[in-house]
């Protein structure tokens, strides 16, 4: 079942140099499952912090973060690690592939945490790489790939264990326009064809155009939510 994300009165404060910085301020936000969300806002508005909380990478100071049936605020560090392994895939701006592993081995990494045989892991990783159009680059190391290819490997790694939620932090930030569009197309396909819930942080309005809905954050609070489907009559940029 596709995940629904429920953010209930979440507050998160960082302390830097003796100064308290409230990044999320009593934020309430509900996201539907199987929907492609773009998360926009000025720097410091709490986009990445919200992404980290939804991905179980960080804890909220107060409030609740519920993804599907799981209240992440109830889980400790190892509980969150187990939950992440099963339910969420990450795509980062800097790709974050492990340089010593091949594309296939990078994609296989999250599968090591699943009860799969070596053969099953290999097959599943290859399927994910085929899905992102990199069947012919499986044995290449990250340094042998272009930026767009690296990001597609990262997306394959994010979907390899078939999570319900994919979280992408500026996935096209390091890519040129053409390559960025190809990556965004891929994310849109994952949402439309595989019904993944996607939450993508971006500064780029063109990238946000690929999402079904655009959430605007401002100073840790919800600004507004734009529905691209209503605007285009189809659902995001086609």
């Amino acid at each position: 079942m596709a995940a629904e994300i429920d953010i209930r009165s979440v507050t998160k404060t960082y302390h830097r140099g003796g100064e308290a910085l409230r990044v999320l301020d009593e934020l309430d936000l509900q996201m539907e499952g199987a929907t492609f969300y773009a998360l926009m806002g000025p720097s410091g508005s709490g986009k990445t912090t919200l992404l980290n909380l939804v991905g179980g990478l960080d804890h909220a100071d107060s409030g609740q973060v519920v993804v599907g049936d799981t209240d992440l605020t109830d889980l400790d560090g190892s509980g969150l690690a187990r939950w992440r392994a099963e339910h969420v895939g990450f795509v980062f701006q800097g790709f974050n592939l492990l340089p010593v592993l091949s594309a296939r081995e990078n994609v296989e990494l999250p599968l090591l945490l699943a009860p799969l045989s070596r053969q099953q892991r290999r097959e599943q990783a290859e399927r994910a790489l085929e899905l992102v159009g990199l069947a012919d680059r499986m044995d290449h190391k990250p340094r042998e790939l272009s930026g767009g290819q690296e990001q597609r490997v990262a997306i394959a790694r994010a979907i390899a264990s078939d999570p319900q939620v994919i979280l992408a932090d500026e996935p096209t930030g390091d890519l040129d326009r053409t390559t960025a569009d190809a990556v965004l197309d891929l994310l849109q396909r994952l949402n439309r064809e595989l019904h993944k819930t996607i939450l993508m942080v971006t500064h780029d309005p063109q990238a946000a155009g690929y999402a079904d809905k655009v959430i605007h954050l401002d100073k840790g609070k919800l600004g507004r939510i734009d529905d691209n489907r209503k605007a285009t009559g189809t659902g995001g940029r086609s």
Partner: peptide, 14 residues
């Protein structure tokens, strides 16, 4: 450090 962060994000424990 960054690789360790990636591993942790993927679900590997401390």
């Amino acid at each position: 450090t960054r690789d360790l962060g990636v591993l942790k994000a993927l679900g590997f424990t401390n």
